[in-house]
Computed example of a mutant assay.
Amino acid sequence: MKQALLIVDVQPSFAPPQWLIDGIQSLIGSMPSAATVERHDESRTPFQKQLGWHPAADDESLIHADRIFIKHGYAPTAETIDYLASLQVERVLVCGLQTETCCLAAGFALFDAGLQPTLITDLTVGSSLDRSGGLGVRLWEHHFGQTVTVGELGRG
């Protein structure tokens, strides 16, 4: 099956656990990959005003993906989705941080673009609301149906 990997916001501002970084990095090179980095620009997304916090304005991805896309806010950019669509893959594997927010937003964007988003459930971490990611996995299964584990990918 032809697939691509979308790594969501694995960056210093969100203090990802080392196991997540190592697990995602082990998939790099086995398929095309893209990573998003959420950067703060209050004039574009009012994180500080509405939520009282914000990611760094200059964060970089901790994963060495084929392509890195900067975003402001929860959802991936149109350029990110266009890149993944251009790969003509059967599905896009999604992993990373904020399972029930940023990963879910990526799932909606991929789905709306006609792609098949598939969450790698053991390579995701939830927000401070649910660090286990369980809420996000349940939402993902409800909206998109498709999840896998690293073991089911034949790596792990």
Rank of each mutant, 00 (worst) to 15 (best):
G156M: 10
R44V: 02
V148E: 00
D82N: 10
G151H: 09
A85K: 14
F69E: 12
E42D: 03
V8L: 08
I120A: 03
V150S: 11
L6W: 04
L62R: 10
V37Q: 04
Q88D: 11
T45F: 08
L129K: 15
G107A: 04
T36M: 09
P55K: 06
Q11D: 12
H72V: 00
V89G: 09
K49P: 01
A15P: 00
V137T: 13
A113Y: 01
A75P: 08
A35R: 06
L110Y: 05
A85M: 09
H64K: 15
R155Q: 11
Q18R: 15
L104R: 01
K49G: 01
R39P: 00
I70F: 01
M1S: 12
D59F: 07
A109Y: 02
S127V: 05
L84T: 12
S33V: 09
Q116G: 07
F47Y: 10
E38Q: 14
H142D: 15
W140D: 00
S127W: 04
G23C: 00
L20P: 07
F47A: 03
L135N: 13
I24R: 06
A65Q: 12
D82V: 04
H143C: 10
A85I: 06
Q98E: 11
L153W: 03
F69V: 06
C103A: 06
L119G: 01
P17I: 14
S33P: 13
V125H: 08
V8P: 14
D9K: 05
S30T: 13
F144T: 06
T36P: 08
H142E: 14
S127L: 07
V94L: 05
R138K: 14
D9A: 03
T149C: 09
S61C: 15
V89Y: 05
G156W: 12
V89Q: 09
L110I: 02
I7G: 10
D130W: 14
V94K: 00
P117T: 06
G107Q: 03
T99L: 05
R91C: 12
Q18N: 15
L62W: 10
L87S: 11
I7K: 06
G133Y: 08
P76R: 07
G23T: 02
W140T: 02
A105P: 06
T77L: 07
Y74C: 08
S33C: 09
T118K: 01
C95E: 11
L27H: 04
I81Q: 02
M31A: 10
Q50A: 09
S30Y: 01
A15M: 06
D22Y: 09
V148L: 03
L5R: 08
E141Y: 05
E152Q: 14
V125E: 15
S61N: 15
P117D: 08
S33F: 10
S43G: 02
L115V: 07
S61E: 11
D122C: 04
H142L: 15
Y74N: 09
A15D: 02
D66R: 05
A4E: 05
D41C: 05
W53A: 02
P17D: 14
S30N: 05
T80Y: 04
T118C: 07
R155K: 13
G136C: 07
M1D: 06
I21N: 07
H143Y: 13
D130I: 12
P76C: 05
H40S: 14
